[in-house]
């Protein structure tokens, strides 16, 4: 059977990994290629690079990062952050990304999802949805969680799927950084209402959180950043824990 994926996420600012600490076996925690290599050897099923570079000029450095990492590491690589057009996506794919995440630009212009999936195939198009709970639903936020939009998360998930998204990266802004677990209701609501895979993001602090995102939230993959960066858990430990709890995992 298909295994559930464990995905570390690296925040990249001007070609350097931020939030990383010096691991014992890594010389330079800021080097994306070195960290990617490390996570690969730890058993990561995919890698996500999120470009948080503020200036668009410096953003070009991301292309070099993708080029370098994809020449050395042969597992799927998703790149997101600042992708605004079909051309932007093409540049990332040509540099060696396998999938490209789009977020704010797709909210402003949903047709971008359709254009990108027609151009490159829907398997390349990951729509990232940042959402915050309100009353009976979830509001979608853009621009790194700063701007509240008119969209509601479940409806947006369905719309993005119909437009040709290949996968959804669902982040709970409420849970992000809290280490108190993923937003299970949000994940479940989206996962059972769309046919494409859902990646859970935001809130991992304990091993049980990963299990719950998969079992209760029905997520197809779980993403985490700080829990891996700060070595609270190794990817291997997460995978062994899940395997012991009867989840199909690649070890």
């Amino acid at each position: 059977m298909l295994t559930k994926r464990i995905i570390p996420c690296l925040d990249i600012d001007n070609a350097r990994v931020v939030k990383g600490i010096s691991f014992v076996d890594i010389k330079d925690a800021g080097d994306p290629a070195e960290l990617a290599n490390y996570y690969n050897s730890e058993g990561a099923d995919e890698l996500v690079f999120l470009d948080i570079t503020a200036s668009s000029e410096k953003r070009k450095t991301m292309i070099d990062v993708v080029e370098k990492v994809s020449s050395e590491i042969f597992i799927p690589l998703t790149v997101g952050g600042g992708v605004k057009s079909v051309k932007d996506m093409g540049n990332m794919l040509n540099a060696g990304a396998d999938k490209v995440g789009i977020n704010s630009a797709a909210i402003t212009n949903p047709k971008l999802i359709e254009d990108c999936s027609k151009h490159f195939g829907s398997q390349c198009v990951v729509v990232a949805i940042d959402s915050k709970k309100f009353n009976n639903g979830w509001n979608v936020f853009s621009h790194g969680g700063k701007i509240k939009t008119e969209k509601e998360a479940l409806n947006w998930a369905k719309e993005a799927t119909n437009l040709g998204a290949g996968e959804l990266l669902v982040t709970s802004i409420d849970q992000d950084g809290q280490k108190s677990g993923y937003d299970i209701d949000l994940l479940k609501e989206i996962s059972r209402n769309v046919e494409i895979p859902v990646i859970a993001s935001g809130g991992a602090g304990k091993l049980e959180h990963f299990l719950s995102a998969i079992n209760d939230g029905q997520a197809d993959a779980v993403l985490a950043a700080s829990i891996f960066h700060y070595r609270k858990f190794k990817i291997k430990e997460v995978k062994e824990f899940l395997k012991n709890n009867k989840i199909n995992i690649r070890i």
Partner: peptide, 30 residues
């Protein structure tokens, strides 16, 4: 979920040089 996306096991029915050193039920990315 569709697409079938992620790592899944491949069960080989026989042997071939191109799959030498690849154990049965090895997981590959689909």
């Amino acid at each position: 979920k569709i697409p079938h996306m992620g790592w899944n096991s491949v069960n080989f029915k026989s042997k071939h040089m191109v799959f030498k050193g690849v154990p049965n039920e090895t997981k590959f990315y689909f």
